[in-house]
Design a protein around this nucleic acid. Structure first.
Lengths: 244, 244
DNA sequence: CGGTTATTTGACCGACTTCAACTGCAGTGG
DNA sequence: CCACTGCAGTTGAAGTCGGTCAAATAACCG
């Protein structure tokens, strides 16, 4: 899988629609240069033209915005298999930025190549669009997470979301998943200070809801964590209601 | 204009792409029953199928989510000319709800009719998609608004956004716009308690940044309000950089 | 091993929430 | 016309969640 980024994408897309062999082959044609990124490295900045899409191959990306005084908010977390900014060329310039979370590998695809692909495979166009709409649904859930949940609920909810999403692409077991995020990333995703985030994280550990490994999270009692978060996965729009 | 909802939509879309006569005519064919809604009335609820799109004709809609204990978060505010949930049929079921903000009139369009329209007018398909992506960009800005701005900045920012968006569709002058929102709506959009919202609103009034009429807001010094909000309108993706 | 970055902890402070009560206004019915 | 009702808005007092400042420890990396 690591050797074939397009297979990762095909797997993700086929969660929602079965793909024909021709479509899989067409995805294989997307092969572009793999680009490694160091933690925190900026792949695209505010103001950049939206002429590229990005497939996350390994690690994670985040979409972020900053205020003039340095306050930072993470808007999305992108996992391996996510195709970022498909169809975004309908807008002129980026209003946010894309940054690597931990060591990351991406495949950068010109929008024009995606458009050509969609021309011959309308089914893929719908699949890409669907992924974009799901990212939107997640962004809306985050508004709720940041606006109305307290720190403990919000953190638990984010962890449930990541667990479910990692699981959907085969990168998590039922009780464990890789976790390249620093505490600052979590804080910026939840609109909290890193210090308060640290305390809430400790609280969840003390309650045995999570166990933090080096770069892993273990969830010994998943229903309990979901309950703490009041997590319902419907907004992830996974096909089999594995989420819930 | 009030007599012809499709003209409202055409006007909105033509902000970004010029529309041919044929395309305008096709939009005119969309005519569907106008549906009046009372304040707070639910047009669509969580779990509903996503088989309809909605054109806001008069008043406002909001997209909202609730937690089990009643906490509520508004995710989007939809203005006249906004076509809500275009292409949403790529997902199965709604994970949020649509509610009227003040007395509102909408035109409900089956997704199948939109799809047929797009089949013959690909340009319209792109125009609808663009609007959807702009709603996403706004949702992301709201994550920042709720997560990292304090109450005063966030409220001022939301007011600047609404002013700019109303202006773009010809429903605001340079210093005034209609305002059907109750304070509770603002609180739910910003993740604040209605009481604190009231105090912050008073603060902005005391600073002469806004004047509240019965159902209007007047902005005596727009640059000052924008400055208080650190408002940059780039995320609204308006064609002429009227925003900023 | 040394230098940087990430995490942890404590003490204090402030923004925002909660609870409770009061005001004003519009609609409604007598 | 006026009393009654109900909702939106307003204000005060007290409490809490989360932020800020400061400093110590632990993990990472060349």
């Amino acid at each position: 899988m690591k050797g074939d980024p397009s297979a990762l994408l095909a797997r993700k897309l086929s969660l929602h629609t079965p793909l024909s062999e021709a479509e899989r082959a067409a995805l294989g044609q997307l092969l572009a240069r793999l680009q490694p990124l160091r933690n925190g490295e900026t792949l695209a900045a505010k103001g950049d033209p939206l002429d590229i899409a990005t497939l996350v191959v390994e690690g994670m990306l985040c979409r972020a915005k900053m205020l003039s005084d340095g306050r930072r908010q993470i808007l999305s977390l992108l996992l391996p298999g996510d195709l970022v900014d498909a169809h975004a060329s309908l807008l002129r310039r980026r209003d946010d930025s894309l940054e690597a979370v931990g060591a990351t590998v991406v495949m950068v695809v010109p929008q024009s190549r995606l458009a050509a692909l969609e021309q011959t495979h309308p089914n893929l166009r719908d699949a890409f669009l669907r992924e974009a709409f799901i990212e939107t649904a997640i962004a809306r859930e985050w508004v709720l997470n940041v606006g109305r949940r307290n720190a403990r609920e919000a953190l638990a909810h984010l962890l449930c979301e990541l667990h479910t999403r990692f699981e959907a692409v085969g990168l998590a077991t039922a009780d464990e998943f890789r976790f390249p995020l620093k505490q600052q990333h979590l804080a910026d995703a939840l609109g909290l200070s890193n210090i308060h985030l640290n305390r809430v994280l400790r609280q969840l550990r003390d309650e045995r809801l999570i166990v933090l490994g080096r770069r892993w999270v273990t969830v010994p009692d998943r229903p309990a964590l979901c309950a703490a978060a009041h997590f319902e996965g419907d907004y992830l729009h996974l096909p089999t209601d594995r989420a819930a």
